[in-house]
Amino acid sequence: MSTEGTFNELVHEPIRLRICGLLRAVDELDFAVLRDTLGISDAALSKHLKVLVTAGFVSSKKIASSTRTDARRLTWLRLTGDGRGVFDDHIRALRQIATGVDIFTL
């Protein structure tokens, strides 16, 4: 893991960055909680999650919900080990940018 921070274009997209930020704070998070905290639609969240899952940064787990009568399942999301590493690196890069340090200095 670089101490200088590594900028990641995929994670840098604002919604995806916020998704990773929320998942980084917990072990697992419910899809509905993530959607409500971000203030976006199910479809929009699913689209961004698909990108993150495909990249191997987020994993999902669906379980049956006894509180639902419509047989829908709960979806628990978590940041993978790779996702944590990439996100932490990206945050370091963002902090360097925010403080005015040029991370591309050779």
């Binding site: 604002p14 960055l17 971000l38 945050i91 963002l94 902090r95 925010a98 040029d102 991370i103």
Partner: peptide
């Protein structure tokens, strides 16, 4: 990037701030 431009620093600060308020 590069990071030297004030708007880039400002954008990065805004992103970091949004992460804090989400948490």
């Amino acid at each position: 990037l590069p990071s030297g431009r004030p708007d880039q620093r400002n954008n990065a600060a805004i992103l970091l701030s949004s992460l804090e308020s989400d948490r």
